[in-house]
Protein backbone atom coordinates (compact mmCIF):
# COMPACT_ATOMS: atom_id res chain seq x y z
CA UNK A 1 0.00 0.00 0.00
CA UNK A 2 1.43 3.35 -1.01
CA UNK A 3 1.78 5.90 1.75
CA UNK A 4 0.20 9.24 0.87
CA UNK A 5 1.78 12.51 1.92
CA UNK A 6 0.53 16.07 1.54
CA UNK A 7 1.55 17.43 -1.86
CA UNK A 8 3.57 20.28 -0.37
CA UNK A 9 5.53 17.86 1.81
CA UNK A 10 6.32 15.52 -1.10
CA UNK A 11 7.51 18.47 -3.15
CA UNK A 12 9.61 19.57 -0.20
CA UNK A 13 11.35 16.17 -0.02
CA UNK A 14 11.52 15.47 -3.74
CA UNK A 15 13.61 18.53 -4.53
CA UNK A 16 16.58 17.55 -2.29
CA UNK A 17 16.18 13.93 -3.41
CA UNK A 18 16.46 15.03 -7.04
CA UNK A 19 19.57 17.05 -6.18
CA UNK A 20 21.02 14.05 -4.33
CA UNK A 21 20.26 11.73 -7.24
CA UNK A 22 21.79 14.12 -9.76
CA UNK A 23 24.84 14.68 -7.54
CA UNK A 24 25.43 10.95 -7.16
CA UNK A 25 24.95 10.41 -10.88
CA UNK A 26 27.46 13.15 -11.65
CA UNK A 27 30.06 11.69 -9.24
CA UNK A 28 29.55 8.23 -10.74
CA UNK A 29 29.90 9.47 -14.32
CA UNK A 30 33.06 11.45 -13.54
CA UNK A 31 34.44 8.42 -11.67
CA UNK A 32 33.68 6.05 -14.54
CA UNK A 33 35.33 8.44 -17.01
CA UNK A 34 38.33 8.62 -14.68
CA UNK A 35 38.56 4.81 -14.67
CA UNK A 36 38.22 4.73 -18.46
CA UNK A 37 40.68 7.47 -19.32
CA UNK A 38 42.77 7.81 -16.13
CA UNK A 39 46.17 6.32 -15.40
CA UNK A 40 45.55 3.13 -13.38
CA UNK A 41 48.60 0.99 -12.80
CA UNK A 42 48.00 -2.73 -13.15
CA UNK A 43 48.83 -5.26 -10.44
CA UNK A 44 48.49 -9.02 -10.11
CA UNK A 45 45.12 -10.34 -11.31
CA UNK A 46 42.42 -7.77 -11.99
CA UNK A 47 43.53 -4.12 -11.72
CA UNK A 48 43.08 -1.76 -8.80
CA UNK A 49 40.14 -0.15 -10.64
CA UNK A 50 37.81 -3.12 -10.05
CA UNK A 51 36.19 -2.12 -6.72
CA UNK A 52 36.01 1.59 -7.66
CA UNK A 53 34.30 0.52 -10.90
CA UNK A 54 31.75 -1.60 -9.01
CA UNK A 55 31.22 1.23 -6.49
CA UNK A 56 30.60 3.83 -9.21
CA UNK A 57 28.19 1.51 -11.04
CA UNK A 58 26.24 0.76 -7.85
CA UNK A 59 26.13 4.47 -6.97
CA UNK A 60 24.86 5.30 -10.45
CA UNK A 61 22.14 2.66 -10.16
CA UNK A 62 21.15 3.95 -6.71
CA UNK A 63 21.07 7.51 -8.11
CA UNK A 64 18.70 6.44 -10.88
CA UNK A 65 16.43 4.75 -8.34
CA UNK A 66 16.50 7.87 -6.10
CA UNK A 67 15.59 10.05 -9.10
CA UNK A 68 12.73 7.94 -10.38
CA UNK A 69 11.53 5.60 -7.68
CA UNK A 70 8.36 6.37 -5.77
CA UNK A 71 10.41 5.30 -2.73
CA UNK A 72 12.00 8.73 -2.90
CA UNK A 73 8.73 10.15 -1.60
CA UNK A 74 8.75 7.97 1.52
CA UNK A 75 11.48 9.59 3.47
CA UNK A 76 11.64 9.54 7.25
CA UNK A 77 12.88 13.13 7.49
CA UNK A 78 9.65 14.64 6.31
CA UNK A 79 9.32 17.39 8.85
CA UNK A 80 10.16 20.86 7.63
CA UNK A 81 12.80 22.71 9.60
CA UNK A 82 14.51 26.06 9.27
CA UNK A 83 17.47 26.26 6.92
CA UNK A 84 20.55 25.36 8.93
CA UNK A 85 23.14 25.35 6.16
CA UNK A 86 24.62 28.75 6.96
CA UNK A 87 24.92 28.13 10.75
CA UNK A 88 26.50 24.72 10.01
CA UNK A 89 29.20 26.41 7.93
CA UNK A 90 29.69 28.99 10.71
CA UNK A 91 30.03 26.17 13.29
CA UNK A 92 32.61 24.40 11.08
CA UNK A 93 34.48 27.71 10.71
CA UNK A 94 34.44 28.01 14.51
CA UNK A 95 36.07 24.56 14.75
CA UNK A 96 38.84 25.74 12.40
CA UNK A 97 39.21 28.93 14.47
CA UNK A 98 39.54 26.89 17.66
CA UNK A 99 42.19 24.67 16.07
CA UNK A 100 44.21 27.61 14.74
CA UNK A 101 44.00 29.62 17.97
CA UNK A 102 45.11 26.60 20.00
CA UNK A 103 48.02 26.04 17.60
CA UNK A 104 49.09 29.69 17.55
CA UNK A 105 48.09 31.20 20.90
CA UNK A 106 48.20 28.18 23.19
CA UNK A 107 45.89 25.47 24.51
CA UNK A 108 44.29 27.23 27.49
CA UNK A 109 43.94 30.73 26.07
CA UNK A 110 42.82 29.44 22.67
CA UNK A 111 40.19 27.13 24.18
CA UNK A 112 38.95 29.82 26.57
CA UNK A 113 38.54 32.41 23.81
CA UNK A 114 36.89 30.04 21.33
CA UNK A 115 34.45 28.50 23.84
CA UNK A 116 33.58 31.97 25.17
CA UNK A 117 32.74 33.14 21.66
CA UNK A 118 30.66 30.03 20.89
CA UNK A 119 28.62 30.00 24.13
CA UNK A 120 27.99 33.74 23.81
CA UNK A 121 26.67 33.30 20.26
CA UNK A 122 24.53 30.26 21.16
CA UNK A 123 22.90 31.91 24.18
CA UNK A 124 19.64 33.76 23.51
CA UNK A 125 20.03 37.52 23.86
CA UNK A 126 17.65 37.77 26.82
CA UNK A 127 19.55 35.07 28.74
CA UNK A 128 23.09 36.27 28.12
CA UNK A 129 24.87 36.46 31.46
CA UNK A 130 28.63 36.64 31.86
CA UNK A 131 28.96 34.35 34.87
CA UNK A 132 27.82 30.97 33.38
CA UNK A 133 29.56 31.75 30.08
CA UNK A 134 32.86 32.61 31.80
CA UNK A 135 32.49 29.58 34.07
CA UNK A 136 31.93 27.19 31.11
CA UNK A 137 34.85 28.68 29.14
CA UNK A 138 37.22 28.49 32.11
CA UNK A 139 36.14 24.94 32.91
CA UNK A 140 36.66 23.92 29.27
CA UNK A 141 40.14 25.53 29.21
CA UNK A 142 41.20 23.77 32.43
CA UNK A 143 39.66 20.47 31.29
CA UNK A 144 41.41 20.61 27.90
CA UNK A 145 44.69 21.53 29.59
CA UNK A 146 44.29 18.52 31.90
CA UNK A 147 43.41 16.11 29.06
CA UNK A 148 45.91 17.26 26.44
CA UNK A 149 48.60 18.86 28.58
CA UNK A 150 48.81 16.51 31.56
CA UNK A 151 46.97 13.25 30.81
CA UNK A 152 47.98 12.68 27.17
CA UNK A 153 51.77 12.96 27.72
CA UNK A 154 51.50 10.54 30.68
CA UNK A 155 49.54 7.95 28.67
CA UNK A 156 51.71 8.25 25.57
Amino acid sequence: MKTSFPKSLVAHRKRPDAALGLGLLLISMVGLLHIWFGRWESGPGVGSWLIPLIAYLCMALAAIVILWSPLAEISENDETEPDVRCPVVVAAAWAILLFLTVLNIGLMVGTFAAVLLATWCLTPRDQQAWLPILFTSSLAAVGFWFIFGILAPIIV
Binding site: E81, P82, V84, P87, V88, V90, A91, A118, C121, L122, T123, P124, R125
Partner: peptide, 8 residues
Protein backbone atom coordinates in the same frame (compact mmCIF):
# COMPACT_ATOMS: atom_id res chain seq x y z
CA UNK B 1 24.87 23.82 17.15
CA UNK B 2 23.16 25.24 14.07
CA UNK B 3 19.70 24.41 15.43
CA UNK B 4 20.58 25.85 18.86
CA UNK B 5 21.80 29.04 17.20
CA UNK B 6 18.58 29.30 15.17
CA UNK B 7 16.51 28.70 18.31
CA UNK B 8 18.47 31.27 20.30
Amino acid sequence: AARTWRES
